[in-house]
Design a protein around this nucleic acid. Structure first.
Lengths: 108, 108
DNA sequence: TTGATACGTGACCATATAGTCACCTATATT
DNA sequence: AATATAGGTGACTATATGGTCACGTATCAA
């Protein structure tokens, strides 16, 4: 599980997950366009981290490597601190924030 | 949001969140027992990071400072990659893994 | 088979991060 | 008032991390 949190800590890696969420099964070359400031090696490393955390799975097709998003670890992360019985309350809070566009958390 | 992910990336900080999930409103001194290998300053820094990410809120009472867990950012994180319509599928997968105790993710 | 394409490995460097310490302020106790 | 307790700040160091590069392998096209 530690690998999942570490993997999610980087904005670039989250952008890669977003890209896969939009369009699953992309190749490394295609995903390089998501992080234009990085070289291919940088993107590869990030995908490696995501794969180690089982947040993406891969499949080789010819000389290409396809990448797929796996949302299961994210749900497990969620369940760690939000128990089933507390869920309705939290859902309500999230909706509140979305509607008010403010920050209604108990300040201080 | 970046602060939330960064905050969750450290095992010690997650342990602190677990401790607050067990028993909300603890003081700094009490939370130091959660991370016995760290000095008070180390724990303070971690709590500072969690507070910056709005994962914990604080309240001063006399010379003590009480710490409270705020689960809202974690739910927002969850919702980013698990859309409402996909939720039942993911829930089923999580249950599967729990029951089988194996790893039924699409390998390669 | 020659060249181009797509991906992979290991070492390397600059920088960010975690943790500690000396020192400080504020509240409680006697 | 004197002392102990609870928490806070800024600077410092060792280490982890992010990113790059030279080089290597496998697949496709001509």
């Amino acid at each position: 599980m530690d690998l999942v949190f570490k993997a999610l800590a980087d904005p670039g890696r989250r952008a890669l997950l977003d890209a896969l969420h939009d369009d699953d099964g992309q190749t490394l070359g295609r995903l390089c366009t998501v992080l234009p400031d990085l070289t291919r090696f940088g993107v590869m490393k990030h995908l490696g981290v995501l794969a180690d955390a089982h947040l993406v799975t891969t499949r080789k097709v010819g000389r290409e490597k396809l990448h797929f998003l796996n949302p299961v670890p994210i749900r497990e992360l969620h369940d760690r601190w939000i128990s089933k019985y507390a869920e309705p309350w939290v859902t309500a809070m999230v909706e509140l924030r979305r509607n008010l566009e403010g920050d209604p958390r108990p300040s201080t």
